[in-house]
């Protein structure tokens, strides 16, 4: 349903007189109901892939489509959970979720789903980092998007909170098997969550390896999982050597 066809994305910095090819000739297909994890070192184009999927950026070459229709702008079909705190601080948690809700009567249900019923009337400033991300997930779910795009949503949290939120996310996903694309640089997280894990190599970003993971629940200490983890770590190690972070946030997209 979600498809990349020979997608390349470049950014240019006119002032500095240089450009970066963030992605090159990427072909990718995400099936309906799939949970895809994208891993790779910093600067390999993970977030660029997600921005293109979300319609927050357009490809320099190629096409990104949802059910055959080109994605050219953000839409409520493509819900994004951002890495940074994206709740509006002047609204309560309930209001943040309600402003996104397709059906306002379900707002309390989404808050209950992420365990924030008691904090519905709190401001985001009264919540911990983990609770803020739970609220952000509730907001995105309330949009009832076709695809849930998650850009290292738990990246700034400690390992225990991250693991709890991963489990909460899996529980939510198992209710309706909504399509999820989850970007992370954490191998353990990718192994816990993904049906498939895609590794990107940097400069320019390209898919270099895909792992199909088995049924859940998974025993992380099984021989198979240990082998896959070692293989992923080896690939990531190789990619880290190629990497070198160039900040593209101030650059202009080359459409």
């Amino acid at each position: 349903m979600l498809r990349f066809e020979s997608v390349s994305k470049a950014y240019v910095d006119r002032r500095e007189g240089r450009g970066v090819v963030a992605l090159r000739d990427v072909d990718l297909e995400v099936s309906e109901g799939e949970f895809l994890c994208v891993i790779g070192p910093s600067g390999c184009g993970k977030s660029t892939i997600l921005r293109l999927m979300a319609g927050m950026d357009v490809p320099t070459r190629g096409m990104v489509t949802l059910d055959g229709i080109a994605i050219e702008r953000p839409s409520r079909e493509l819900g994004m959970v951002f890495q940074e705190d994206s709740l509006l601080p002047w609204l309560t948690v309930r209001h943040n979720v309600a402003m996104a809700a397709k059906d306002p009567t379900l707002v309390d249900g989404y808050l209950d789903l992420v365990g924030l019923t008691e904090f519905a009337d709190s401001r985001p400033s009264d919540l911990s980092g983990g609770m803020k991300q739970r609220a952000a997930i509730a907001r995105t779910l309330a949009m009832e998007p076709r695809v849930l795009l998650m850009d290292e949503p738990f990246g700034s949290l400690d390992e225990q909170t991250r693991s709890e939120l991963d489990q909460a996310l899996l529980n939510i996903w198992e209710r309706d098997h909504r399509t999820v694309v989850f970007v992370t640089h954490n191998i353990s997280e990718a192994l816990r969550l993904g049906d498939r894990v895609l590794l990107l190599t940097p400069r320019p970003g390209r898919p270099s390896r895909v792992w199909e993971l088995g049924e859940r629940p998974r025993n992380m200490d099984s021989d198979d999982m240990i082998d896959i983890r070692k293989e992923m770590e080896a690939w990531m190690g190789r990619c880290e050597c190629l990497s070198g972070l160039i900040d593209i946030s101030a650059m202009e997209g080359a459409p």
Binding site: M56, S75, R76, F82, S86, L88, L91, M143
Partner: peptide
């Protein structure tokens, strides 16, 4: 920028975008 991305993603109209995001 992240608030603007949220507004884009939620397809807020010009008035809601102003009232809920830009003004505050």
């Amino acid at each position: 920028p992240v608030y603007l991305k949220v507004a884009d993603m939620l397809e807020l109209g010009p008035w809601d975008r102003f009232r809920l995001v830009l003004l505050p």
